[in-house]
Measured scan of single mutants.
Amino acid sequence: MEVRTIKVFTTVDNINLHTQVVDMSMTYGQQFGPTYLDGADVTKIKPHNSHEGKTFYVLPNDDTLRVEAFEYYHTTDPSFLGRYMSALNHTKKWKYPQVNGLTSIKWADNNCYLATALLTLQQIELKFNPPALQDAYYRARAGEAANFCALILAYCNKTVGELGDVRETMSYLFQHANLDSCKRVLNVVCKTCGQQQTTLKGVEAVMYMGTLSYEQFKKGVQIPCTCGKQATKYLVQQESPFVMMSAPPAQYELKHGTFTCASEYTGNYQCGHYKHITSKETLYCIDGALLTKSSEYKGPITDVFYKENSYTTTIK
């Protein structure tokens, strides 16, 4: 009895394709271990004539594949690729409408935090270190965002349907971005203890939790000093293409032309909904596939993004 075979390709990165001759009487799992086709788990399936010449994702289970996976995804987590594939199996079914010149995501599976993050990423200057993220990001900007969303979920250790947080998501993504040249110098002034300067680099240099107003941050924000008295913390120097200011959701007025974009969060910790506000020729609110415009805006804002380049204080 002759062994019926077909020729397929296996890959971990969709760049390096490895030619395989597979036995049609055995499952993919018996031949390769966990195997995925377009995100779908085909591990328990036997090869079919229609699979001839198709590319299958496999887990990096030998040295060659491990090197290829690390170079593309910059992670050695053995569960990463499987999590990416199972997320992709959902995100490829989502709709990605162009809204006001940006790629958004039609609401499904509690994905409003991903839509808000995706919209924000198209408006701030950011370059990702893992080629996987950078490639998928370019495709997302062009309207094909399924891979990018699935990668975000995998890097953030999230599953489809789980509630997510924009600030946490951005923080994970910033860790995989090139923020080497970003720098922030802060000064804390206390009447009792004097003053202390701190220099922050990388992710810490672009994120701040405690106030939404970048102007206020430049002037000074009140913080408790270690001595128990009130101290003032203010920005001395900022070198970065953008800054992200966050605070627990509270009524906040966004003035046209003073910011790049913002995240609105309605609801409580267990259950809520994100919308995205962007400042173009007027203010726009993007909620999944829905767009509304207004000249002014007041609502429960939790993150505001500002364009920056270089700032030095005039406070002496």
Results as ranks from 00 to 15, higher is better:
Lys46Trp: 12
Asp41Phe: 05
Met170Trp: 02
Leu186Lys: 02
Tyr96Lys: 01
Tyr84Phe: 11
Ala145Ile: 01
Leu133Ile: 00
Gly29Cys: 14
Ala115Glu: 09
Arg167Gln: 10
Val67Met: 15
Leu88Ala: 07
Leu153Ile: 11
Gly272Lys: 07
Ala40Ser: 14
His51Pro: 03
Cys112Ala: 11
Thr19Arg: 11
Thr314Met: 14
Gln30Cys: 12
Leu186His: 05
Gly82Lys: 15
Ala150Asn: 03
Val203Asn: 00
Val58His: 09
Arg184Asn: 03
Phe128Gln: 04
Asn89Asp: 09
Lys46Thr: 15
Ala132Asn: 01
Ile301Pro: 07
Arg184Ser: 15
Thr76Gly: 11
Lys106Asp: 13
Asn129Ser: 07
Tyr208Cys: 08
Asp63Arg: 06
Gly210Asp: 03
Cys182Asn: 08
Asp303His: 07
Gly161Ser: 01
Pro47Leu: 05
Thr91Phe: 01
Val243His: 05
Lys316Asp: 15
Gln20Asn: 14
Lys280Pro: 03
Glu215Ser: 07
Lys280Gln: 12
Lys95His: 12
Trp107Thr: 06
Thr192Tyr: 07
Asn309Leu: 12
Ile315Thr: 15
Thr27Asp: 11
Thr312Lys: 10
Thr75Asn: 11
Asp287Thr: 00
Glu296Asp: 15
Tyr297Val: 05
Asn111Gly: 01
Glu144Gln: 14
Lys218Val: 04
Thr278Gln: 08
Leu291Gln: 10
Lys255Thr: 09
Phe32Tyr: 11
Phe70Val: 10
Met244Glu: 01
Met207Phe: 04
Glu68Gly: 09
Glu296Ile: 12
Gly143Lys: 02
Gly272Pro: 06
Tyr57Val: 11
Ala132Lys: 14
Gln134Pro: 01
Pro130Asp: 02
Cys225Ser: 02
Thr313Met: 15
Val189Asp: 14
Ile124Cys: 00
Phe242Glu: 06
Leu17Ala: 13
Phe80Leu: 02
Glu2Ser: 10
Ser246Phe: 00
Tyr252Glu: 08
Leu254Met: 07
Ala150Leu: 01
Ile315Arg: 15
Asn111Tyr: 07
His273Tyr: 00
Gln222Trp: 04
Glu308Asn: 04
Pro47Gln: 08
Phe70Gln: 11
Tyr73Leu: 04
Gln196Tyr: 13
Asn268Arg: 06
Thr103Trp: 04
Leu118His: 02
Ser86Phe: 10
Lys218Cys: 03
Leu186Cys: 09
Asn147Ser: 08
Lys219Asp: 08
Cys193Ser: 04
Asp23Ala: 12
Lys183Gly: 05
Ala177Asn: 03
Gly29Asp: 06
Gly272Val: 00
Thr292Cys: 04
Glu68Asp: 08
Gly299Pro: 01
Pro97Phe: 07
Asp62Ser: 15
Arg66Ile: 11
Phe217Ser: 04
Tyr113Asp: 07
Lys7Ile: 10
Gln222Asn: 10
Val206His: 03
Val160Leu: 06
Pro60Ser: 08
Leu163Ala: 03
Tyr28Ile: 05
Gln123Cys: 06
Ser294Gln: 13
His256Met: 14
Ala142Val: 13
Pro131Trp: 01
Phe148Met: 12
Thr120Phe: 07
Asp303Pro: 01
Gly267Met: 15
Glu71Cys: 07
Gln98Trp: 13
Val160Tyr: 01
Phe242Leu: 01
Lys218Phe: 02
Thr266Leu: 03
Gln98Phe: 01
Gly143Phe: 04
Arg4Asp: 14
Pro47Val: 08
Glu308Pro: 11
Cys112Val: 03
Ala115Val: 12
Ile45Met: 13
Tyr72Gly: 07
Asp303Glu: 03
Thr199Lys: 10
Pro241Cys: 01
Thr192Asp: 13
Pro34Gln: 14
His276Met: 11
Ala205Gln: 00
His74Tyr: 04
Ser295Thr: 11
Lys275Glu: 07
Asn49Glu: 13
Ile152Phe: 08
Ala40Trp: 12
Ala40Glu: 14
Thr302Arg: 02
Ala205Asp: 06
Met245Asn: 11
Gln216Cys: 08
Lys316Met: 15
Ile286Phe: 04
Glu264Pro: 02
Asp180Lys: 14
Thr282His: 09
Tyr113Gly: 10
Tyr284Pro: 05
Asp135His: 10
Ser25Lys: 07
Leu118Ser: 04
Gln216Pro: 05
Tyr28Pro: 04
Thr43Asn: 06
Gln195His: 10
Lys298Ala: 14
Thr27Cys: 15
Ala108Tyr: 06
Trp107Lys: 10
His74Gln: 08
Asn14Val: 03
Ala115Asn: 07
Thr159Gly: 09
Lys106Glu: 15
Phe9Gln: 12
Ala132Ser: 05
Leu102Pro: 02
Lys201Tyr: 15
Gln134Gly: 04
Tyr269Ala: 15
Ser295Gln: 14
Tyr84Met: 09
Met207Arg: 03
Gln195Leu: 13
Met24Val: 11
Ile315Leu: 15
Ala117Lys: 04
Leu133Trp: 02
Lys127Trp: 03
Cys261His: 05
Ser50Glu: 14
Leu291Tyr: 15
Phe56Arg: 03
Ala231Glu: 01
Lys218Thr: 04
Leu37Thr: 09
Lys255Ser: 04
Leu81Glu: 07
Lys293Gln: 15
Asp13Gly: 09
Ser86Asn: 14
Arg66His: 13
Leu235Pro: 00
Gln230Lys: 10
Asn89Val: 12
Ala247Glu: 05
Arg66Met: 13
Thr76Ala: 14
Cys261Asn: 01
Val243Glu: 01
Val8Trp: 02
Pro34Asp: 08
Leu153Phe: 02
Ile105Pro: 07
Ala177Glu: 02
Met170Tyr: 00
Gly228Val: 01
Glu144Asn: 12
Thr27Phe: 15
Pro60Glu: 01
Gln251Glu: 14
Ala150Ser: 01
Val206Trp: 04
Phe242Trp: 09
Cys156Phe: 02
Gly39Trp: 09
Ser171Thr: 15
Gln31Asp: 12
Thr76Arg: 12
Gln230Asp: 07
Ala150Ile: 05
Ala115Cys: 14
Cys261Ser: 10
Tyr155Phe: 07
Lys307Arg: 11
Thr211Val: 03
Asp23His: 14
Leu235Asp: 02
Val22Thr: 12
Gly161Glu: 08
Tyr265Phe: 14
Glu253Cys: 06
Thr232Gly: 04
Thr192Phe: 08
Val67Arg: 14
Leu173Ile: 11
Tyr96Val: 07
Thr199Ile: 12
Leu133Val: 03
Ala145Asp: 03
Ala140Asn: 00
Thr292Ile: 10
Gln251Ile: 12
Asp77Ala: 05
Thr226Met: 12
Gln251Arg: 05
Cys112Lys: 04
Tyr73Ile: 06
Asn110Ala: 07
Leu173Phe: 00
Thr5Val: 14
Pro97Glu: 06
